[in-house]
Design a binder for these strands. Structure first.
Length: 208
DNA sequence: CACGGGATCGTCT
DNA sequence: GACGATCCCGTGT
């Protein structure tokens, strides 16, 4: 169990980093409570050319500034006023490349996750979807910008020696793109094939 | 199973 | 002042 080094994150190809995050262990220690899960679904976002990225055209605001940090920290923002969505910042400084974590397979502290989610039964809904898994791990917007490179941090990612083969990865279009632009069809959503903790593939929608 | 609406608020115009 | 990288629950089939 070794923590992922900065060099894992600072590579220029965010799509490649997204694929390699599959099978890694996402760990949180919030107020002494340790919870962790294997990453089974990711989505890449890449400024400046990706219209779906908050930092499209390298737009810097107080919210997006974290995305321009050097790879290896968290980007957390609130969606629909309720959900805290956890992203991994990648790329060199000033490259706004991020990876949204969309699904994990619960590994440690399952009881704590269930309590945070208000579930009394273990089921895929516990950690399926970016809002749900963030809640299960206790990740909130206040953690935006924190380092992932140190186990003294509240969040980090470990290599657990699990190698996901290329043909075990399913690529598809990203979700939630309301504006039907070309980039909404970029196959930048990655899942581990057949993993029950990963959501179902979404249908490609064409805008005619 | 598919669809639809409500919750709820930070962020940007 | 509008809206969103979501989720949950209700309704209908």
């Amino acid at each position: 169990m070794s923590i992922l080094p900065k060099s894992f994150y600072t590579r220029s190809d965010v799509v490649q980093v997204s694929k390699e995050l599959l099978g890694k262990l996402l760990v949180s220690r919030i107020n002494g409570v340790l919870t962790a899960g294997t990453i089974v679904e990711t989505e890449a976002y890449r400024a400046p050319d990706d219209k779906a990225c908050h930092a499209y055209q390298n737009k810097r605001t107080s919210r997006t500034e974290v995305m321009f940090h050097e790879g290896g920290c968290a980007y957390v923002y609130i969606c629909y006023g309720i959900h805290h969505l956890f992203n991994v910042v990648s790329g060199e400084k000033d490259m706004a490349h991020v990876i949204l974590i969309r699904g994990i397979e619960p590994i440690k502290g399952v009881e704590h996750m269930m309590e945070r989610r208000g579930l009394n039964q273990l089921k895929p809904a516990l950690t399926a979807g970016p809002g749900s898994l963030s809640k299960a791990l206790g990740i909130k917007k206040e953690l935006s910008g924190v380092s992932l490179l140190d186990k003294k941090s509240k969040i980090w990612i470990e290599d657990q020696g699990l190698n996901i083969d290329k043909n075990e990865i399913v690529a598809g279009p990203r979700v939630g793109m309301s504006t039907a632009e070309e980039c909404s069809h970029w196959p930048w959503r990655f899942r581990i094939k057949g993993n029950k903790w990963s959501s179902k593939p979404n249908t490609v929608k064409y805008d005619f």
